[in-house]
Structure formats: structure tokens, C-alpha cells
Amino acid sequence: MRMKGNGSMSPVPLLEIRNLHVRLEDEPSVEILKGIDLKIMPGEVHSIMGPNGSGKSTLAQVLAGKEDYEIVEGQILFKGQDLSDLGPDERANSGIFLAFQYPVEIPGVSAMQFLKAAVNAKRAFEGQGELDAGALLRHFRAKALQINVPFEMLKRNVNEGFSGGEKKRFEIFQMAVLDSVLGILDESDSGLDIDALRIVSEGVNSMRDGTRSFLLITHYQRLLNYIVPDRVHVLIGGRIVKSGGKDLALELEEHGYAPFGVNESAVASA
């Protein structure tokens, strides 16, 4: 059961973005996001599609709380609460997860050690004590099984020497381990072969339970064959120029971004 939110009876959206204007702190003359409005209800999957440079990744990073950006105007509400005063760690602990487009290597820190720190940070945030080693391991094993990642991955250093596919799968695994309610996937499909894409998608689908929501940021329609979105938005030049159902993605696949005045060859090269 899902209620579309446009009446007074609607529940609180999980994420609501109102007229969001964003610029780079170091380059205040360039506005990257020029008035975004977006509402994601609990359980919904939304996709933002657009050519490179349209502001997709900026939106993802702003949601996660990256400090290089300045919100000039507008609001981001998560579960009805303004996020602007929360740092990235507090946002994560509140249930927002950003799956990075380029996951970062952390030399000398095992995935196990890293996730232990993350899980316990979240527990502390929720006023709970640290999880003991046994409970932690059981939790990791269960999630590794669910997301279909080899448990051995946890013994390696975070993202160090991971293949592109392994990095993306590890992101989804972390999202499952942290039990986040809003997953923002920043081009999690890029650079994946078809098998890796399927594993990543199945991992995400296994987390869909009617309350968790996802925002899929992607360039290509391909991912949406596996994770079927409720809504598709086209982001171009920092604005959402069109929104629609899942068919919109197919339209884009067929006609590209040219109908929106975008030069395709420039896009393909990036």
C-alpha cells in the first residue's frame, strides 16, 4: 500500500526537497542546483536521470552533507525535519546512506574495522551500547548473505584493490549493514558488467520493504530494468525539467536527452 502525497491526508514524506538552490563554496558565482523540488514517500523508488554535469552528483552529495556546497535557498526535510544543521555523520546515523560513485580507498583499515566503527557510531547515536564481537559478526554474515557479497571481503582493507564491481557491491552491503531507510545510489551502475549490475540490483531489491526508499541517480536506463522506479525525474542544468513514471526512462533511452536541448556526443564522451 502506498499513498501518493498530494493531499492533506498524506503521511510525512521521507525526503522532501523544496526549491533547493546550491552553489560551490569556492565558486559562489556558479549555481549548480537551481531550484529543485522533490518529494519521496516511504517505500518509493525514485530515479534521477540526466546527462553529465547536470547536477546529479551534487544533489547526492548535498543530501549526504558534503561541506563543499552552500545552500543558497530552499530546504531539505528528512522525516519532516530540516537537515541543514546536521553534519554528514548525523545524517548517516539518522538513516541516510549515500552509495558513492567513486568509493574511497582507506589503506590499513579493514572493512570489518570500518563497519564496526560505523555500526557502533549509529548505536551510540540511538543511545545504545556497542555491539559485542559475536553479535557484530552474525549481523555482518547475515547481510553478506542477503546482498550476496563474499564474507572474505570484510577482511580486506576498505576498497583497497577492489574491482569496480566489488566496490559497488560493497557500498550496497554497507547500506544493508547500517539498515539505512533512504538509499541514495550515485551512479552505482556505472562501470558494471551485466552480472555485477544484477547482483547490485538484487541487493537493493532485497532491501525494499515498503518503508525504505531509494533515490537512484543514473545516466542510463539499464539499471531501471532491474530496480523498477515509481517516479523518474530528468535533471538538466540544475533543474528537474520533466517527471513521470517508469516509462519516462524508456523514452529517454530511445530519444536521449536531445529533446531537452542536450548535445549527446558531449555527454557520451564523459
Binding site: P88, A92, I106, V109, L115, Q174
Partner: peptide, 21 residues
């Protein structure tokens, strides 16, 4: 940012990174 985006405080993140180092 990668660490803090996982909920780890900045202070703990620095300590984690340095320990890895």
C-alpha cells in the same frame, strides 16, 4: 567524508585513518 557519510564522527574518522596509516 567517506567515513563521516557512514556515521563515524570526524574525530573518530581521523583516528581510524591514522591507525590505518
Amino acid at each position: 567524508f567517506y567515513c563521516t557519510a557512514r556515521g563515524i564522527s570526524e574525530e573518530d574518522a581521523v583516528s581510524l585513518l591514522v591507525n590505518g596509516f
